Structure formats: C-alpha cells, structure tokens
Simulated assay, not measured.
Amino acid sequence: MAGETEKIPWNLWQCLLVLLGMVTAGYGTALLVRFFAPGLAPAYRYLMVGLAQGAAVLGGLHYIVRVKNGLGLEAVGLKTTTVPRAITSGLGGGLVLFLLVILVGSLLQLFLPDQAPQPFTELVIHARRPSDLLIPLFLASFLAPVTEELYFRGFLFPVLKERYGLKKGLLGSGLIFALLHFDLVRFLPLTMGGVGLAYLYERTENIVAAIIAHATWNTIMIFLLYFALRWV
C-alpha cells in the first residue's frame, strides 16, 4: 500500500512548515486584498487567496520532495501507470463520499440550529449565470483537489501512517483536513471525507484517485447548490 515500501524522507515538522506556509499565504493575501483592493468582487478575492495558497503548497512540496530529497512526483503518489484505474476509483469514491457527507450533514442539521451559509457557498448560491460558476469550479473542482490531495494525502498522510500506524494516520489526516476548513458545523462530515480520501489513496496507491474523488465530490456539490435553488 501507499508509502509502505520505503521510509518517508520528510518528517512531521516539515509537513507543519508547509501547512503554516499555506495558512500564512492565504491570510496574508486576504489582508492585502482587503487593504489595497477593498472593492474587489468576492469571486476574485477567493481566486487570489486560492492561488496564493496553492502556490505556497506546491512550492513547499517542490522544495522538500524534489530539491531537498531529489525525488520525483511518484514520491507523493502521482503515478502514470495506473491512471485509468485511479480515475475509475476516484469517480466512484467521490460519489460515495458526496453521499456520505450529505447524509451526515443532514443528520447533524436535525440537532443544530440553522447556520448561515459559508462565504464560498454564498458565492455559488448567488451565481446568476452559469458563467458565474467558472471561478468556483476552478477553485473547488481543480485547484483545491490538486493542492489539498498532494499535501494532505500524498505528503502528510504517509508521515502520520509511518509514525502512528495506518488507522491513526487515516484519522489524523482527516482531522487536520477538517480543521483547516475552519467550519465547526461541517467538521465531522469533512473529517469523514478526509479519512475516506486517505483510504482511497491507500487502496489505489495513486494520488490521482484521491484528486478525482475530491473533484467529483466538490463538483456535484456546486451544481447541486446552483440548480437546487432554481428548481425551488
């Protein structure tokens, strides 16, 4: 399975440094936009923050994996030999995770007071034309799946698994994934989704499967939000 054959050449401290870089890039960009471009449309604010976070993650992984350790992208699970199987597994896994997250989220709503939608959700809800979904789809269906899966599943999960074992590695990566979304109401569903994505990577040994699953989950959610309000 993923990460079992060789010792992971990076450590938990380096994982935390990349995570810190991602958070700093996101908040730093948000502050700069608020100060220098307060009238910028929300979609473009999200785009700039997302690009900054993505650059921080990919830059950190590039330095630690490729520059510092001289390894290729295979080290973080990006393999070309099993891509067709990974795509199939990702599509099926993404659908299952979407249904699971929806189910758990719906059950939680029975016990929680009505919550205001998250800002990104409002961006989708207030989209007037299909073209207004271009930036949300780019962020949620491409940029986030690629950068988050490379980091949380390809980079962080193997370290947690090697240090604490498979079960704790799955749970730990899921918990950290959920925490970084800063969404208390969806914490449990996101944790379960993160565990599911790590398990999918563990089973397929190809990060492409997790990326496709993440993209499928997010894409279905966006279109569901967009069209549901127009059918009501």
Results as ranks from 00 to 15, higher is better:
L156E: 07
L156N: 10
H62Y: 15
R128V: 15
R163D: 09
G172L: 02
T219G: 08
L107Q: 12
A75R: 03
V101G: 12
E205W: 13
H126R: 15
L156S: 02
H126V: 14
R85C: 09
G154Y: 05
K161L: 05
E205F: 09
V76H: 00
F142S: 07
L179Y: 08
K161H: 05
A140K: 12
A43D: 12
R45C: 02
K161D: 10
L137K: 09
I125W: 00
F152A: 05
L110I: 06
L197P: 06
T216R: 10
E74W: 10
A178R: 02
A25P: 00
K167T: 07
N69T: 12
F138S: 04
E205R: 13
G70H: 05
G28Q: 00
F98L: 12
L166C: 06
F157R: 05
A56G: 04
I8M: 08
L180F: 15
L143D: 01
T219R: 07
L19M: 14
N206G: 04
W13C: 07
G169D: 06
L225T: 05
K168D: 08
A178Y: 08
P84M: 13
A228N: 09
T81R: 08
P189R: 07
L171K: 02
R163H: 11
L175Y: 10
R45P: 02
V124T: 09
A55M: 03
V159A: 07
R85K: 14
L175W: 09
N11W: 14
K7P: 14
C15H: 14
F177R: 06
E149Q: 10
A55K: 00
R34W: 00
A127M: 04
L160N: 11
N11Q: 06
M22N: 09
L73E: 11
K68E: 15
L180G: 01
G26M: 04
R230T: 13
A228P: 01
W231Y: 14
G194Q: 03
A127H: 03
V83Q: 06
T204G: 01
R128Y: 09
Y226P: 13
W231A: 14
L134A: 15
A213T: 12
W10A: 03
V83H: 08
G169S: 01
L31Y: 12
I87G: 07
A213N: 10
L123Y: 02
T29H: 00
P145G: 06
Y44W: 15
L133F: 01
G21T: 03
I211W: 04
I176A: 13
G92H: 07
Y199H: 11
G196P: 04
A41Q: 10
T147M: 00
Y27F: 08
F187M: 08
L184N: 06
L179T: 04
I102Y: 09
A43P: 12
M1H: 08
R129W: 10
